[in-house]
Amino acid sequence: MIVLFFTYSVVGWLWETIYCSIKDHQYAYRGFLFGPYCPVYGFAITTILITTYQVRDNLFLLFIVGMIVASIFEYVASLFLEKVFHMKLWDYSDLWGNLQGRIAPQISFFWGIGVILLVRFIQPIVQRVINWEEGWTHGMLALLIVVVMGTDTVMTMISVKHFHMTTKQWDQRINAFQEQLRERLKEALPEERALRRRQLEHWDQSFVDQLKEHPGKSLGWNERRIIKSFPKMKVLDAKRFNQVKQHLSNK
Rank of each mutant, 00 (worst) to 15 (best):
R30E: 11
V119M: 07
G101W: 08
R240H: 12
P39N: 06
Y37T: 10
G114M: 08
R120P: 03
E201G: 06
S93T: 12
I130F: 03
T151Y: 07
V147S: 07
R128S: 12
K239E: 13
G12E: 11
Y29V: 10
R173H: 15
F177Y: 15
E183G: 07
R56D: 08
R182Q: 09
D91A: 00
L79F: 10
E223Y: 01
K88W: 03
T51E: 14
D57I: 07
W136T: 05
L219H: 01
H247Q: 04
P36D: 02
Q127G: 09
L95S: 11
L144K: 06
I2C: 07
N131T: 10
D171G: 07
R225N: 06
V3F: 06
S206C: 07
Y75Q: 05
Q26E: 14
H138S: 08
I226A: 11
H202Y: 14
I18M: 09
E82F: 02
R197F: 11
L236P: 06
T7P: 05
S9E: 07
F60Q: 12
V40Y: 04
P215T: 09
R198I: 09
H86M: 02
S21A: 00
I18W: 06
A188N: 08
T151F: 09
R193E: 14
F73Q: 00
W13R: 05
F85W: 13
D24L: 13
T52D: 03
I72P: 05
N98L: 04
H202E: 14
K251R: 15
Y8E: 03
F177P: 03
F5D: 01
